[in-house]
């Protein structure tokens, strides 16, 4: 495909949609629907400046800390539970139950236990985002190749080396699949924890705009959340490609033969 054609495919539909939106909202005075130019201006004036440092950055910081602990704890606990059979049998039904609890209901619960502060919001993110990583890791450890596992044993590879060079690489595809789910759950929980109980942060600000009928500002907040979601997805894609390049390569080879 020629580069020109590729660019046309990449930008064609989005540009078409924006033109359509612009044309439809051109003469309209509908209070609820902002015009594209107006929205772009609002986006700039609303979010660049003090609000970026007071609301957006702290929210992102909490999200990053929460996700980091959720992923790290999920992998460590998952490796531990997955490689110990009795522990796995003991905890599996319980973990399935915890995963099934819709994470947003933990907001009022943790608010009681911890109070309304940053650690509550981080705890909410951890307690919701840990399950996909944890359960996928457990599942992955259980499904490691039996022949490879036996080979490791006969070569005397055990303990930390076994985890570092055999278990962890074998489980990484599953872990990454879990991380992908965790990212979107973490973002949802970041917003909800701020909407439910907070006086600052992205979620709080957007609800505040809506209550004051600041419609273009509200829309711009939705766009900011969308951009954060997109940014997370891009970072994930980048990391996944680096971490799993051997896996994708392997899949291509086996697919071709």
């Amino acid at each position: 495909m020629s580069p020109l054609k590729r660019i046309a495919y990449f930008f064609g539909l989005p540009v078409l949609l924006i033109i359509l939106w612009w044309a439809l909202s051109f003469g309209s005075t509908n209070f609820f629907v902002p015009k594209p130019v107006e929205l772009a201006q609002t986006l700039w004036t609303t979010w660049i400046g003090d609000r970026f440092f007071d609301d957006v950055l702290p929210s992102l910081g909490r999200l990053a800390v929460g996700l980091f602990f959720a992923i790290a704890l999920g992998i460590v606990l998952g490796l531990l539970i997955g490689s110990t059979r009795w522990l796995r049998n003991l905890l599996e039904p319980l973990l399935e139950f915890f995963r099934a609890i819709p994470p947003p209901v933990l907001v009022p619960l943790l608010m009681l236990l911890i109070g309304v502060n940053d650690s509550m919001k981080i705890a909410v993110i951890i307690s919701g985002a840990i399950w996909p990583v944890l359960l996928n890791t457990v599942e992955g450890v259980r499904a490691v190749d039996a022949v490879l596992s036996d080979s490791c044993r006969s070569y005397g590879i055990r303990g930390f080396a076994r985890i570092r060079y055999f278990v962890l690489p074998a489980v990484t595809p599953q872990i990454m699949a879990g991380v992908r789910q965790s990212l979107s759950i973490g973002l949802i929980l970041m917003v909800i924890s701020e909407m439910f109980a907070s006086s600052s942060g992205l979620g709080f600000t957007i609800v505040q705009f809506q209550r004051n009928f600041a419609i273009p500002e509200m829309w711009s907040g939705i766009v900011v959340l969308g951009l954060i979601g997109l940014g997370l997805a891009l970072i994930f894609q980048f990391v996944e490609r680096r971490v799993l390049h051997w896996y994708h390569g392997l899949k291509e080879i086996t697919h071709d033969s």
């Binding site: 495919y9 990449f10 930008f11 539909l13 989005p14 949609l17 609820f32 979107s184 973002l187 949802i188 917003v191 909800i192 909407m195 979620g203 957007i206 609800v207 705009f209 809506q210 419609i215 509200m218 907040g221 939705i222 959340l225 969308g226 979601g229 997109l230 997370l232 997805a233």
Partner: peptide
């Protein structure tokens, strides 16, 4: 539609809460 879908998909649905209320 690839880029459009990839752009719309990661928007967290909770971002639509204020819109829904409105």
């Amino acid at each position: 539609t690839h880029t459009t879908i990839e752009f719309l998909r990661p928007i967290p649905s909770v971002a639509l809460i204020p819109l829904a209320v409105l």
